[in-house]
């Protein structure tokens, strides 16, 4: 039971991280390989604000979100926008990887190599439900992830901006002749993605400790979750994240701990082979909906 709760909490954060990858992928068809680093920067800067400037949790995370928004916009401006048409040019693979490496090394120099104890929300207070001890922090992880997920869907379905995002992701050129500045929309998507990354980094850091190695230890899960849920499918990201959390949780109960990741990634590969569009593309979920004639 304990494990399941923890798995769900971690899964929610994986979902948030996958959502952030999906937001960018949906409008650009590129995978932000610097995303792990952006998550890490979110965690490290908020830790820094919490511990050095003794800010309260809310202000620290808010500032970290702002920093991450600016950072992500800079990443877009510097390593993506300059490349022009991304369908013709795959240099983004290199530039985004490069941006990630620069961020990691900068973080190592700024924050040092030692993992830091990141405080839990509500001082790690634990409540007992049916004999299972659940940290309020874990409940907050799930809650925040659900709120952000729902909020994002509302924005994307109901607002002018959301319509434009969907238009850009479907037919970027047609969107442009509607008067939508596709580059602006993509820039906004990078910004939102950075904000979500900061929150996900800050929420998982108490569990993993804040360290510049989060890029790899945590960031890699974001890509796995995004692939399981279907790249660019922002609803699928949640399914992907939660499934990854549960797969990990269940796998580590029944196999030696070291094999856990192997199993999660094996499942990821199977999903990609059987359902290239992610779990949500299974017939079970698509019902009678029209087939997307993606261009």
């Amino acid at each position: 039971m304990q494990e399941i709760v923890t798995a769900l909490a971690n899964g929610s954060i994986y979902a948030l991280m996958a959502l952030a990858i999906g937001i960018i992928y949906s409008t650009t068809q590129i995978i932000n390989f610097a995303h792990g680093s952006v998550i890490m920067i979110g965690a490290m800067t908020s830790y820094w604000l919490l511990s050095i400037f003794h800010m309260n949790y809310f202000t620290a995370i808010l500032l970290a979100v702002l920093i991450n928004i600016i950072l992500s916009m800079v990443i877009y401006k510097v390593s993506v926008e300059k490349l022009g048409d991304l369908t013709q040019n795959s240099s983004w693979i290199v530039t985004l990887f490069g941006a990630g490496i620069i961020l990691d090394n900068t973080a190592r120099i700024l924050f040092g190599t030692e993992p830091k104890a990141y405080p839990f929300l509500f001082d790690g207070h634990v409540i007992s439900i049916f004999g299972t001890k659940i940290m309020i922090h874990e409940m907050m992880m799930i809650l925040v992830a659900v709120i952000i997920g729902v909020l994002y869907q509302i924005v994307i379905q109901k607002t002018n901006f959301g319509r434009a995002v969907r238009a850009v992701s479907f037919r970027p050129d047609t969107a442009r002749i509607m008067g939508i500045r596709s580059n602006r929309i993509v820039l906004m998507c990078f910004a939102i993605s950075g904000a979500v990354a900061a929150i996900s980094g800050a929420l998982i850091a108490p569990i993993t400790f804040a360290s510049y190695t989060m890029t790899y230890s945590v960031g890699i899960k974001a890509f796995a979750a995004a692939l399981i849920g279907g790249l660019g499918n922002t609803k699928g990201a949640f399914i992907g994240g939660i499934s990854l959390g549960l797969i990990e949780g269940i796998a580590s109960m029944i196999v030696p701990g070291g094999l856990k990741d192997a199993i999660s990634f094996l499942i990821m590969i199977i999903v990609i082979i059987v359902l290239p569009g992610g779990i949500l593309s299974a017939k079970l979920f698509t019902k009678g909906e029209l087939k997307t004639e993606k261009i």
Binding site: N160, R163, A167, F170, R171, I177, M178, G179, I180, L290
Partner: peptide, 30 residues
């Protein structure tokens, strides 16, 4: 578009997963 020029593209290029209403509203994006 702001200055009053509009293109109706070849093949119509409706956004198939937007509702009719949303398609029209996208036309008025600016």
């Amino acid at each position: 578009v702001q200055n009053g020029m509009r293109l109706v593209p070849e093949g119509r290029q409706i956004f198939p997963q937007h509702t009719v209403m949303e398609n029209i509203l996208l036309g008025a994006y600016i």
